[in-house]
Design a binder for these strands. Structure first.
Lengths: 354, 354
DNA sequence: CTGTTAGCGCATTCAT
DNA sequence: ATGAATGCGCTAACAG
């Protein structure tokens, strides 16, 4: 067992080699017998320091294991070399994007700081503005915001949004083609022979959700099918709620033979509901999701879904931000293709209702 | 198109409402007609402020969208309410852990700051000490370090290590049971009837790699098989190198019927080599990996592997860190079970060689 | 070449 | 109840 003891209230000794772990620039200066600014110069490789002095300072830095505090430095300097990535929390969606950003940023000279405010409930509204205010202007040179809920004009640093909830208008943004993806999903079901296709909608306040419904409707319209509002319950992008509305949807007499869910979480809910009702997937019911999260592949049966190029989204967002930081012109809006991935949850409708 | 223009050199106007995005406490104070300390008191909910004044300040804060700078605040205060997670880069392994930490941290009152130095080459050695020095004592209250390469004593803040390369001795650490996991993998192959089982080793300088080899050898020994060094090439946890050594291994006359690779990346390399040599998996060759990264499931055939509870690792690390921060006693070392996941890459050996 | 002075944005005494 | 002064760790502009 070990007990916490981190010298929070340790009296700093009269002389160097502080007992606590934290080593500051003054510790180094004192030990090396020079002034603080001299150490600063050495740290930043500026000239105007005698070679002998620099060497001695370097030795002390090495010995004490000193490293400049990112905080103190960034308070004083304008550029920090750190890019912020703002998310509400770390979950499969945001971490996949993070992975893409990281791959793109390697050897770019920038460091990455991913920040999760972990706010819940009321406080969630406007989280991105708050987080950005806390970091921008000091800690970070620019930011990538994952699924921001509001538009932000006049930010202190360059910002690129990924999959903004409000749609990609007004600021540098990148997202996947939700309309085309949803259309591909519905086209796939139509091609299999389905005619009665339901759509479990996402959060109605989000742009992505509405775009997916648009794609669904466009596909139906192209096939000469008029959309039936009774087949469009709202699952709010949530598994539990989607399972609930799916149960109702699938219990009726004239139940659909296929469901296109607004995201994978919803699709998993539909799968759950089908299982409870004794419906086999894909024999009795076909299900398509959206996003292609890891669980989609692990589901039983593996979920047919629309894959968003999450890593690409991240990588390209980083590229755009780099462009903004370097004062280059960058496209205001980039849209990446979403592609259908056919797995085991879709099949032709059962003969009885065909 | 839009061009970067973020008022870096904007002259601050004589009066409030600065043109740049950055709003400081003095802007608020000036606008509200009070002093800076008063605003500070209001922000931190301290008393000693007239209700009327507080209300006015609150209004201005709201109007200006002011938020305290994390940097400036943390420089002055000891506690920041932010936990740092230090990684070299964001990839599937570290982001999975991140997801687990995030789930555990929600509603804990702490915010999460994941920091990737993105160092490569020489500078990589000792990255965790450098990153920690840059953040600890100021920005973060404690840190979780993912796969640190060195031991760190006497840190400025509490630290918990996940899967330390040096083994879990000396500081609060958590990892998966590599020995037992490797043993389970090898036992599985033995149970299928394999006798000639190779092991593609990982990075020999890492504790996890050596532990996995130990488990492999222990399993063989228990079955009365003496380990053959010729069957233990080093793949260095890398796909390309592993494919190379596997090609050599599988080209020989007395080739093994099964391979236990030190991690999934290596296993994918073995799969590659087998395909090139015309060996069918699992009919001609069984392959087992370690880690259970998402690609393991997506491989052809789906990879039998040993799953590390990455999210649990993260969640429990957060729990331990919380304990340290609260001055509670926490176990110095936690070891979580690694479990075999049997998929499609393993089967009994071909009759010819059985 | 070096040290002194100043100030980044904020929180904390201590006066008033 | 409020404001002036001080310092966190660091860097920039100057003075010696």
């Amino acid at each position: 067992m070990c007990r916490a003891r981190y010298g929070e209230h340790v009296e700093s000794a009269v002389h160097p080699l502080p007992s606590s772990g934290r080593v500051t620039i003054s510790d180094v200066a004192r030990t090396a017998g020079v002034s603080v600014p001299t150490v600063s110069k050495v740290m930043n490789g500026r000239d105007g320091v005698a070679p002998a002095t620099a060497a001695r300072v370097h030795e002390v830095i090495e010995a004490l294991g000193y490293e400049t505090s990112l905080v103190a430095r960034s308070l004083r300097r304008s550029r920090t070399g750190v890019i912020g990535i703002l998310v509400t929390e770390f979950e499969p969606f945001s971490t996949e994007i993070l992975t893409g950003i990281s791959a793109a940023a390697i050897e770019s000279g920038y460091e990455l700081l991913a920040y999760a405010g972990l706010v819940v409930g009321e406080a969630r509204q406007g989280w991105e503005r708050r987080s950005l205010s806390r970091l921008a202007g000091t800690l970070i040179d620019g930011a990538i915001i994952v699924t921001p809920t509001t538009l932000m004009a006049d930010t202190a640093v360059p910002v690129v949004s990924i999959d903004p909830h409000t749609g990609p208008e007004g600021h540098a943004a990148i997202d996947a083609d939700n309309v085309a993806g949803a259309r591909a999903a519905t086209d796939h079901l139509l091609a299999l022979g389905h005619r009665r296709i339901a759509h479990v909608r996402g959060r109605v306040d989000l742009a992505s959700s509405e775009e997916r419904r648009q794609g669904y409707r466009a596909s139906l319209a192209a096939a000469g099918i008029t959309a039936d509002p009774a087949l469009e319950p709202v699952g709010g992008y949530q598994t539990a709620l989607s399972a609930e509305v799916a149960r109702a949807l699938l219990s009726g007499p004239d139940r659909p033979t296929a469901v296109f869910a607004a995201n994978d979480g919803s699709a998993l809910g539909v799968l759950q509901a089908a299982r409870q009702l004794g419906l086999r997937v894909p024999d009795d019911l076909s299900v398509v999701g959206f996003d292609d999260v890891p669980q989609a592949l692990a589901a039983t049966p593996p979920l047919t879904t629309v894959s968003q190029p999450l890593q690409d989204l991240g990588a390209q967002a980083f590229g755009m931000l780099l462009g903004l930081l370097e004062g280059r012109e960058v496209p205001n809006h980039v849209r990446l293709p979403a592609t259908l991935v056919v797995r085991g949850s879709t099949a032709p409708p059962p003969p009885a209702v065909r």
